[in-house]
Amino acid sequence: MFHYLKYFLFHIIGLTAASFLFLGDGWVIYGLIAVFSTYIVLDAVLGDDTTVPKFKHPVILTTQLWFALPLLALITFAFLWQVSSADLFGAGALIQSVTGIDVLASRAEGGAGVAFAAIILTGLMIGLIGTITGHELTHRTWDPTSLFIGRWLLAFSFDVAFAIEHVYGHHRYVSTTKDPATAPRGRNVYYHILRSTISGNISALHLEKERLNKTGHSAFSLRNSVLRGYLMSAFLVALAYLAGGVEVMLLFVAAALFGKSLLEIVNYMEHYGMVRNPETTPVQPRHSWNTNKRFSSWTMFNLTRHSHHHAQGEVPYHELRPYPEAPMMINGYLTTIVVALIPPLWHALMTPKVQHWDKHYASEEERILAQEANAKSGIRSLMKAA
């Protein structure tokens, strides 16, 4: 029973974030700090989870994923309500009548700092609730319901194109120069966010055009799932506009773009500096940075077990193995995100890991590719090893 319940931590975090957004004022700021602190502290003290339990009722685990869509819709509504001047659908009055808490008065006391914290908290939830679950669901190409829900989850971060590029592009070319999401050695994370976003969308459009051409259809039609994805995101933006005009719409766009940025930061972390020849070497567990930190694993549907995921992309999250012998990230996901956002600290911690990978994980061919990557990295210690 516990192994089913542990994945509901994901939903508890989402509901807690929505509660903070409704409470407003300082609660939004405290909630943001609490979420980051919880991940960083618990990943540090709880250690690794290397269990692979057997599940007799996998339908429960799939249903847990589907719950992410109404949960993210609730979080987004709470955000729009918080940054709007109107009491949307009478939510504030309803909360006060049930709990006795005057959330409308609390909202009125919030300022620019609260609005900024709300953007970051909502963007974090779009990444956590939306992108992580959307990633898992859009891999289930055999299940129309999962694909439908997964694509709508990705629409909140303007990234339905991810469902195409990630599954059919990234998984094929990961850890090579052909993959937009794989950051070469020495790249700055902020540049990577921009570069990977643009290149990833171009790749998705190209892949979808190839698919449609094979069936005799034009890429400029609603048969194009990437274009439909853009329309899905535009629909959400339009709802934000209806909720509070241009200002509320722009605040939602900011939260969505932050959620999208988190995806690219995670891509940066998961494959930074890896090299591989796609023509001669299939993807193996050693071509992804892994982590088995317990709290991240339980609340992110084992996204942390990235080495196995890339070795066998069709395996559902609850069957992923921990691969403790795989190359390891700095720590859990949010901790590593914080480190990645400080480039000098990132390179100081990751350069030794990359050098260790070259020595202990790379094949002979990959060591040659690594030397070429080191020479281009701009990092002195790597360039010396080239």
Rank of each mutant, 00 (worst) to 15 (best):
Y7L: 07
F8E: 07
F10P: 00
T16A: 15
A18Q: 12
L23F: 13
W27N: 13
W27V: 03
T38Y: 09
Y39F: 15
D43T: 09
A44C: 05
D48T: 15
L69E: 11
F79M: 13
L80T: 04
S85P: 00
S85G: 15
D87L: 04
A91K: 06
G92Q: 05
S97R: 13
V98N: 01
G100M: 02
I101R: 10
L104I: 12
L104A: 15
R107A: 12
G111Y: 09
V114Y: 03
F116E: 03
I120V: 15
L121P: 00
L121Y: 12
L121H: 11
I126D: 06
I129S: 14
T131E: 13
I132L: 15
E136H: 08
E136G: 10
T145P: 00
S146R: 13
L147D: 07
G150Q: 10
A155W: 08
A163Q: 07
E165Y: 03
Y168P: 00
G169N: 11
R172W: 00
D179F: 08
A183M: 09
H192P: 07
R195C: 00
T197V: 04
G200R: 10
I202H: 04
L207F: 07
E208Y: 02
R211W: 02
R211P: 01
R211L: 02
N224A: 03
V226H: 01
V226A: 02
G229D: 08
S233R: 10
F235R: 03
A238C: 11
Y241T: 09
L242C: 07
L242D: 00
G244I: 12
V248H: 06
L250N: 03
F252P: 04
F252R: 14
A254H: 12
A256D: 06
G259N: 06
V266I: 15
Y268K: 05
M269V: 10
G273I: 05
G273A: 09
V275R: 14
R276D: 02
T280F: 01
V283W: 05
P285W: 06
P285M: 07
P285R: 12
R286Y: 05
S297R: 11
S297Q: 11
W298V: 01
V315N: 05
P316I: 09
E319C: 02
R321W: 01
P322Q: 07
P324E: 01
A326D: 03
P327R: 08
P327E: 03
Y333N: 13
T336D: 11
A340S: 14
A340R: 00
P343E: 09
H347N: 14
L349E: 13
M350C: 06
M350F: 05
Q355F: 02
Y361I: 00
A362S: 06
S363K: 06
L369I: 10
Q371F: 01
I379F: 01
